[in-house]
Design a protein around this nucleic acid. Sequence first.
DNA 1: GTATGTGCAAACTTTTTGCACTTCG
DNA 2: CGAAGTGCAAAAAGTTTGCACATAC
Lengths: 135, 135
Amino acid sequence: MNKINDKLRDKGLKITPQRISILEAIYNLNHPTADDIIKYIRQQHSNIATGTVYKVLDTFVKNDLIKKVITDKGVVKYDGLLTNHHHLHSSKSDEIKDYIDEELDHILTAYFKKKKITNFEIEEISLQIKGKFNK
Amino acid sequence: MNKINDKLRDKGLKITPQRISILEAIYNLNHPTADDIIKYIRQQHSNIATGTVYKVLDTFVKNDLIKKVITDKGVVKYDGLLTNHHHLHSSKSDEIKDYIDEELDHILTAYFKKKKITNFEIEEISLQIKGKFNK
DNA sequence: GTATGTGCAAACTTTTTGCACTTCG
DNA sequence: CGAAGTGCAAAAAGTTTGCACATAC
């Protein structure tokens, strides 16, 4: 079971209650902001300093445990999904949803394999699909 | 010649020196931030209040005279290019460059014409291509 | 003349920083 | 024990707001 501890250990990071809580928050919430994470942890159990949260999130991003995603509106969110994927952005709010589409990825990879961009070396391609969510 | 005045007039916006300077700044600079625009105008000629710049930029975005672009790093920039295009994002800095590719746009349009996303109505698709610029 | 736009300064939001203290391993 | 992590509070960065005054039309 203790997957979270393993993830931290695998990256050579010290296992602290704060780090565990933050990772849990990211997995339980949907693309939370730093503030969402702080509120979640405080309502769950323990207190946590805002500075700590920002520092830990930075550490996690640098160690590829999570990804930083920026909303169409400029809001910074965090994503625990590491496999290649795109995002659906609400044109009204700053809500985002993961969009996984392997077929599309193949098309894009094939396309950019033959069509090079001059003076630019591609590392990662992500689609930002803006529109309306129909609930 | 007086294209800038015409653009403002066409949108029913009052023509003021501040608005003209801001539009000029956006056309002369490459994806400037609000701060880049302020510095540019101040160094060129007249003074301008920061509040005014933010208000004018908002007005321009709402009236489709410019677009707001958010860097991979979360920096807010403004883009005077209105035709459909994508952006190349530097993985190191917050630099961005326009990327126009009609062939790619056709492929994407065709792809999403047949492949619908459930509970989501697409309004606009933009690629965020992250990588290295080779100067 | 009047609706609209601008300047200014204060306030707000989000994030960063430095340093003493604490904890993990 | 020592290196790494955390709490705290102050400050930085970027943006918004309200209101008196100025300007475009």
